[in-house]
Every structure is written in C-alpha cells, then in structure tokens.
Design a protein around this nucleic acid. Structure first.
Lengths: 245, 245
DNA sequence: GGCTTAAGGTATGACAGGGAACCATTGCTT
DNA sequence: AAGCAATGGTTCCCTGTCATACCTTAAGCC
C-alpha cells in the first residue's frame, strides 16, 4: 500500500495524534527544558539553578540523567558548577559566539519558523483576551509590576524582561496548559531572536504596544487586548520573516 | 526552605517550564495517544487501527510496549484483535458503562476543566482566524467537505463529525503545533462531553454556528471567524460548566 | 489442496534510565 | 577548631524498554 519505505512511515490524516511519544532519547527532552529555563531568562546570568535534587524531581528524571544534561551545558560554557554548601549550578552570561561546531547549533535550522510565529500569535492573543476577561486584584499588581520592569530595563536585559512580561500574561490567563505551551514557544522564539539585532527603535515601539496591551487588559476590554497583542506579535513576526527569509 | 514535604516539590514561578519531562512511565504516554485516536473518532467503531508494526513506528515505541497498551484497551472492551491476514486491531462501539473500577475512569477526575475549556477556546479562535487569513483552494474544499459531513451526520455520529470538522480547521491553520495541541485538548473535551447528554436542540444551534464560522473563513474575514468561533466554544463551555459545576 | 502474505503472539538478549545510598567539598555556626 | 548542613560527584543494582527474530493464524491466490 502506502509508498513509504525508508525514514518515517507514510503520512496520513492521523498525524496530529500519531506523533512520537518521546521527542528524543529522554535525556534530550530534559536538555530541552533546562535550555528553556535559560533562554527564557527565568534564571538570569549569575543566578543559581535549583539544586540537582530539586531539578531532577521537578523534571521527573533521575539525578544521573540530569547531570548528563548539566554536563552538556557546562561543556558549552552556559553554566558552571560549584561544590560545597551554598554551591550549586550557576548561569554564566551568554558568550558572544555560542558555539560553532555543535549539538546546540543545528537545532535552530530544524525550527519551523512559520509554525512558531503563528502558534505564538494565537497563544498570546488568547492569553491577553482571557486576562482581560477575568483578572484578580493580585493579577493586576503582577501585571503592572512586570510592565514597569520592562520600562526600566537596560538594553541588555530587555529581552529577558519582555519575556517575563509575556509569560506573566500567559500565567494570568487561568490556563496552566496555555502558560506551559507559551513558555515552550517563547523559548524557541528567543532562540530565533538571538540571531537578529535588537534595535532601539523597535524596542520603543514595542514598549508602546506593551503599554497598550496592559491598558486594555486592565480596562477589561478583551477585544482590544487581543487586537493590540496581535499587532504586537505581528511586528516581531514581520521582523523575523524579513531577517530569515 | 519551602514547606513542601510529601508529593510534588514546592511550587514556584518556574513551573511553566519545570514540568515533568514525561507524563508517565512512557507506556502511559502511548496509551494516552492511542486513546486520543479513539476519542477523536479518527478511527471509528468497526474500523481497523494501523497494524502493530506501523503504530509502534509512528509512536516511536517498541512493539512490545505498544502491545501492552493494546492489552489494556482490550481488557476495557474498547478494541478487539483478530489474527491472520486481514486481521488487526478493531475498534469496538462504545459500551454504555465504560468501566466502573478502573484505570481509565479515574483520569476524568484529574482533568482541570477550566484549563481545558479556556485553552480550547484560544486554540479554536486562533485556528479560525489563521484559516481566514490564508486558505488555499485545496483547504476550501476540505473545509466544505467537513462541514457537509456534519450536516448529514446522524445523532450517534455527530460528535465524531463535529470533532473532524474542528480538527480540519486546526490543521488548515498552518501550524502543526497548533493542530497537535488541539487534538490533545479535544480528546480531553470529548471525554468530558461523554458524561453529559447530547440534546438535539444544542446540536441544531451548533450547526448554525459551524456554518457561520466556515462562511466567515471562506469570506476571508478573520475577525468574524474568531468571533463566531469564540461564541461557538462559549456554548459548549457553558453547557459543561453547568453539568459539572 | 498448498503456497504466500499480512497480520497478531511470543521469546530473548542488550542497554538506557531510575532509585538509593554513599563520598567529597565548602561555608556557616558553635 | 569542630561540627553541621547543603550542595555537587560517584557507584551499584534493578526495572522498563527496545530490537530482533521467530511462531501462529487466517484469508486469498495458484
């Protein structure tokens, strides 16, 4: 029947469901998630990762396997381990040339950019809308805080604060799944963004849009929030499509 | 530090990323996906699943492990295996009482309904919008076909055709990730919907909304498509919240 | 009837990954 | 100076999973 032979089996309408159960040899998945942690800037340079015991519990992998992951990151000069009490695994500042030869470099070529950009826009707009529909007083505070942090951020820290703001919105959406998916797609996005220059002009424009989105959310105007957010995402998307096309 | 002790480690702001790498012991993940296949109605009752060898390749698990999965489904009277040429694993019609004691029953209690409903709405609205923005001629045909199939469906087959229509929209969005995520969330949704009655009145209303969404998409009107779809999802959500609250 | 073919059913050996215990190092507290 | 506590570093064994090959059943074809 189906013509398939080498490589993957023949495609079909069941592909949305019949995707591989595990993306890689299991340790790769863990690597992926720790990389997310770094790319999202959830643990900024200089700070300490959770201890190996904690991390392995969270990720539900053995400490042995986690250590193999950390070994890779050490070899890439992305983290550094110190022993003893108050030791731990510390994040190093990004080196200009991440690595020519390797492992981590080729991943970027495998990213389906169009998929990433579209999915991102859907999640962001959705999250903004949900936030505008039902936001707690506590949520308002967190959101304002995150926005303020981006306003005051220096250029080198901007990407990180921007990520944090969007992540906050996703978390306040009230859907844990949405937040988790956004984290994943945002990590991919940041990786792509690392390849293109950060212009002050774009940054300023971006900041205006951030303010508009947050305002719409605080005004409890879901339609406006979604619309603003879509526009915001569209800007980034156009930028990336331009640089990568 | 954190007060956690038994069970999961202490929560924190990193939880969006630090989720478990594997949802279960690996065989559970496969079970999950085969269950999706059945719940989505991608393989309707009476039909044959792909052969064990094919399925295991798609899911990237060994045949041994896959057979353990199928064993569970056989024990639940959800599928039936026949040997010999033109044999295979066949889907059985849903039994009224799925199973009192077991394994599969308790999963439903673990579902975060609010999460599911919100995430679903975001994905559906997003997919509808993306479709309306860029739909190929081929896509138009598939969409019309799926809509027609729901119009002609009998009551017992309605849920399945409905699922297929929405799944088609998700696939036509141009984001594979979106389609895969929608498949997952829809499988969960169907499981919830199985617990409540299907009223003809709701069904007719639903059909009007389907037509409206498809029309908006074919008119290339993203805003209308999103709005219609949100309304459509809102209906289901209200129904479920009412029955499960 | 006998062969071929495609499917499920079974058995075996290798290995990755997990759990748990233990060692080594460091800095704080006494 | 001694002890304690929290961390990274290491080892051992065991279970789950995989790959492979082979057996069994049943439908079609010669």
């Amino acid at each position: 029947m189906a013509a398939g032979g080498a490589g993957d089996p023949a495609p079909g309408p069941l592909d949305s469901v019949l995707r591989p159960v595990r993306a890689g040899n299991g340790f790769e998945e863990a690597l992926e998630q720790v990389l997310q942690l770094l790319r999202l800037g959830l643990v900024p340079p200089g700070e300490r990762l959770p201890s190996e015991r904690e991390l392995s519990q969270h990720l539900r992998i053995s400490r042995v396997t986690l250590r193999e992951v950390l070994k890779v990151l050490q070899d890439q000069n992305m983290v550094e381990s110190r022993r003893g009490r108050y030791g731990g695994t510390f994040v190093l500042p990004r080196t200009a040339a991440p690595d020519g030869s390797g492992e981590l470099r080729r991943r970027i070529a495998a990213v389906d950019v169009e998929d990433t950009l579209r999915f991102r826009e859907v999640l962001e707009a959705g999250a903004a809308g949900l936030c505008a529909e039902g936001l707690t007083a506590d949520g308002e505070d967190r959101l304002r805080g995150a926005l303020d942090a981006t306003q005051g951020a220096r250029l080198e820290d901007y990407r990180r604060q921007d990520t944090l703001l969007h992540l906050t919105l996703a978390e306040l959406s009230g859907s844990r799944t949405l937040a988790a998916q956004y984290a994943a797609v945002r990590a991919t996005l940041n990786e792509l963004l690392d390849g293109i220059p950060l212009l002050v002009r774009n940054l300023e424009h971006s900041q205006q849009q951030h303010a508009a989105v947050v305002e719409a959310v605080l005004d409890r105007d879901p339609d406006a929030a979604r619309e603003m957010m879509r526009e915001h995402c569209g800007g980034t998307a156009a930028l990336l499509r331009g640089f990568l096309a």
